[in-house]
């Protein structure tokens, strides 16, 4: 199963920036575009169900169904210093919203390393991979519910 095309494009764009500092700058700019989940989707307290397991930045993932049955993904990041989580949220929200559910369900969690490189702490890796895993799991759950 192919990775959603837009995610492939995003990863290839990032990998075209081999200089670590330039890539970090790109990711910081992405984090600056982070928009929290709108109140029509979710309000605080968010509860435990949408909480990303193992994410120390206290990230939450929410979905909104599109008319075509695909999902928009929305995020909240409670840690004001969770800048990597915000960058990851922007990447996942941009690249996976509206993508075929079966493809989103297959996105491997190690895309985190293609985005951030290998120089991540175990805790940070776990949290970011948890975000990817949660998005995939939500897509899988919805796809199975629809018999996709």
């Amino acid at each position: 199963m192919a990775v959603p095309e837009k995610l492939t494009d995003t990863l290839e764009t990032l990998e075209m920036v081999p200089d670590r500092n330039e890539r970090i700058q790109l990711l910081i700019d992405l984090a600056g575009r982070f928009e929290e989940v709108p109140p029509r989707i979710a309000r605080r307290p968010f509860g435990e169900e949408p909480r990303v397991p193992a994410c120390e930045s206290e990230a939450f993932v929410f979905t909104e169904e599109r008319p075509d049955g695909t999902l928009d993904f929305h995020f909240a990041v409670e840690n004001p210093q969770g800048i990597s989580a915000k960058a990851m949220a922007v990447i996942l929200g941009d690249a996976l919203s509206g993508a075929p559910l079966a493809q989103v369900a297959q996105v491997p969690t190690d895309v985190v390393y293609r985005v951030f490189g290998r120089e991540l702490s175990m805790g940070k890796s776990m949290g970011l991979m948890g975000m990817v895993g949660m998005v995939s799991a939500m897509a899988k759950q919805r796809a199975e519910g629809k018999g996709v």
Partner: peptide, 9 residues
Amino acid sequence: NEDPLLYPS
């Protein structure tokens, strides 16, 4: 930091 994006930000 733990987060590699913080110092450059």
